[in-house]
Simulated scan of single mutants.
Amino acid sequence: MDEIDVVQVKCPECGTFTYDQDVLDLTIGDYCIVENPYDENDVVVGQIARKFKIERQKSTKSTPKVMRKATPEDKKTFEELKLKEEEAHNICWKKIRDHKLPMKLIKSHYYFDGSKITFYFTADKRVDFRALVKDLAYIFKRRIELRQIGPRDEAKMIGGVGCCGQKLCCTSFLKNLGKVHMKMAKEQNITLTPSKISGICGKLLCCFEYEREWYQQARKTMPQIGAKIEFKGVKYKVEDLDPFHGTIKVKDDDGNIIEVNVEDIKR
């Protein structure tokens, strides 16, 4: 099977994403210039964290390529922009307060070429920020964009630790936030308690969506709830399934419930 070389690039402000290495000679620890995963018209400086191969048929045309290795000048520019972003953030926050706008400023981002500044914010409803944009354009003498984002994008930008104890999926590897439904949680036998099924953004956990296929495949190897089975000469009724551990709970005619490994039933 034909394979291609890919690298995982860790960006301070974007998280870790996979890029096509193409023909570049890259090693772990190298700094490189890659497409901003959130804006195809911008680039960022990242560091190679891992190298591996994937089958070409599993790659997609949307997988971006590493543009080039970063020069010392690139890294210096990137650090200077981080300082400018902090200054721009403070100025924008003060202007929001002066205009008494009902919005929460989340992040400020300079394009790598310095031509544009994007301010990300959240709000409960639409906000008329035209006067604010004029003020900011006059101060910075650059193109200004104010972009309203939702709770999930806010968590993705700020980062944090999920209920599993790991770094948030959306800031570590999950580029596209798919639609998540309550049905997905039910399929995975998750207790439907808000604190158990919600992320720090207050929305349903993203892992329900990308782990769904695994649970669906695992369930195909297990009997359905309510099915009648025979185990060690005794007839049971299936009461509950645990695809993650590969076990089921069954009840006999006397009401006794035991836990059985699915593989033991198949033997």
Rank of each mutant, 00 (worst) to 15 (best):
residue 59 S to I: 06
residue 53 K to I: 08
residue 193 T to W: 02
residue 207 C to R: 09
residue 180 V to W: 04
residue 216 Q to L: 12
residue 68 R to Y: 00
residue 114 G to H: 12
residue 141 K to V: 07
residue 242 D to F: 14
residue 23 V to G: 05
residue 121 F to Q: 09
residue 243 P to F: 12
residue 252 D to A: 05
residue 230 E to G: 03
residue 261 N to F: 13
residue 260 V to E: 13
residue 237 K to V: 12
residue 139 I to K: 07
residue 118 T to C: 06
residue 135 D to I: 01
residue 191 T to L: 11
residue 228 K to S: 15
residue 46 G to E: 05
residue 30 D to W: 11
residue 252 D to C: 05
residue 267 R to A: 06
residue 50 R to K: 12
residue 220 K to V: 14
residue 136 L to F: 06
residue 144 I to V: 12
residue 46 G to C: 06
residue 144 I to F: 05
residue 236 Y to D: 11
residue 151 P to V: 14
residue 246 G to V: 12
residue 6 V to T: 00
residue 117 I to E: 00
residue 135 D to Y: 04
residue 143 R to P: 02
residue 66 V to A: 03
residue 168 L to N: 00
residue 42 D to Y: 06
residue 266 K to D: 01
residue 196 K to P: 04
residue 189 N to R: 03
residue 36 N to F: 05
residue 70 A to E: 12
residue 95 K to G: 03
residue 154 E to W: 07
residue 15 G to S: 12
residue 34 V to N: 15
residue 7 V to P: 13
residue 99 H to I: 01
residue 238 V to C: 02
residue 262 V to N: 04
residue 85 E to K: 08
residue 52 F to A: 13
residue 238 V to W: 06
residue 172 S to R: 10
residue 219 R to K: 15
residue 159 G to E: 03
residue 45 V to F: 07
residue 65 K to G: 09
residue 198 S to E: 02
residue 231 F to Q: 12
residue 4 I to E: 05
residue 7 V to E: 07
residue 149 I to T: 11
residue 264 D to I: 03
residue 177 L to D: 07
residue 88 A to H: 06
residue 122 T to L: 10
residue 119 F to V: 09
residue 118 T to P: 05
residue 3 E to V: 09
residue 65 K to V: 11
residue 171 T to P: 04
residue 128 D to V: 04
residue 137 A to P: 01
residue 148 Q to L: 06
residue 47 Q to H: 02
residue 126 R to A: 00
residue 173 F to A: 07
residue 245 H to Q: 12
residue 194 P to F: 01
residue 229 I to M: 05
residue 171 T to G: 01
residue 194 P to E: 07
